[in-house]
Design a protein around this nucleic acid. Structure first.
Lengths: 192, 192
DNA sequence: ACCTGAACACCGTTCAAGT
DNA sequence: ACCTGAACACCGTTCAAGT
């Protein structure tokens, strides 16, 4: 990669973080290019699709998430690991507005630049779930797909400004539907 | 309202149903006007915003939903009513792609043409929840907001093509986090 | 009253022309 | 190799001009 190309690429990424922080996943590509002092066509040659750009923006975070799953699995009980990771993932989805919707879409089509990262996250979650199911602390009639669906659903909800304040509470309610371990259901128990 | 105006209005609505069925909530207004044989400006005078158009498209369904809540509340136990209504609402959100996201957004700002309908649905849900909480069959540490968040979250998930097939199962998992009545948690129990 | 076409400022895609 | 400006086909908004 030529020096000027590399410089443009990183400049675009830097600017993109700001613009996306402000406008979410449907930020204007033109706007990003403009603010980066680069032709729109140049931006699009580095990142042919919107998702390619986000893949670059998110890849380190996503890698960290799948790695976090391993760490948690090794360090505590399976149900606590699942809950912690759940929380971690929901927090991640709050990094940029609209990022959950994009990931859910990418999850469907293998051609998306985000597909691999999504699959990795999906797989990490499925592994944690399986572990908890083995211990009998997560409901058995649930697949990795179900978990991914519920996580993204919750992530989406928390993306809505009006629901964001209840994030943690919503997480607990959903978690109490997934986990069977009483220790994780204290909120539910406390109701009595 | 003049005769030609009324004709245009209903023609737009008829066409809009088709276009929106095909393209979801971000169907092109221009496209709808075009197919309806009407100027774009005309469409926009009848429905000044996208949400105003959807309000007209959805109002009968939404009214039916709030009414359904009353019927269910009168006819069965509170937890069963809540579950049935939950199911009904998730089914509704599948009428057009993107409709949940639009409702969640409308739920936030009172200026939206959909605000009133959303508030009514919200209120109906809150009433059912309160009733179930009174019977001790729904967790007490939950608000109508939480219920609305979970319902829309699930509706959003089911809106994703990859999650749609699991709709009913996902509903049961979330419901088992909301309800405390064992009779509604058979799926969870059956796992043992 | 009601409708319309056109002008406007945006968007992402594409490509021929430049260095 | 890499960048760019411009043309293109879209979008929703607005408004002066028509009946």
């Amino acid at each position: 990669m030529r020096a000027d190309a590399e410089k443009n690429r990183s400049q675009v990424l830097t600017v993109a973080r700001d613009v996306v922080t402000e406008h979410g996943t449907d930020a204007s590509m033109r706007d990003i290019a403009r603010r980066a002092g680069v032709g729109l066509a140049t931006l699009l040659r580095h990142f042919p699709t919107r998702e390619a750009l986000f893949e670059a923006l998110l890849c380190t975070n996503l890698d960290a998430l799948t790695q976090k799953a391993d760490e948690l699995e090794a360090s505590t009980s399976a149900d606590k690991a699942l809950l912690s990771w759940f929380r971690e993932l929901v927090a991640f989805t709050q990094s940029y507005r609209g990022v959950v919707a994009m990931m859910a879409a990418a999850h469907t089509n293998p051609d998306s630049a985000l597909y691999a990262s999504c699959a990795a996250v999906h797989a990490a979650g499925a592994r944690l779930l399986l572990h908890a199911q083995g211990e009998g602390t997560a409901r058995a009639d649930m697949s990795g797909d179900d978990l991914f669906a519920l996580i993204t659903a919750l992530g989406w909800a928390v993306d809505q400004p009006s629901f964001a304040p209840r994030a943690d509470h919503l997480l607990h309610i959903v978690a109490s539907g997934i986990l069977t371990n009483p220790s994780s259901n204290d909120a539910k128990k406390a109701a009595y």
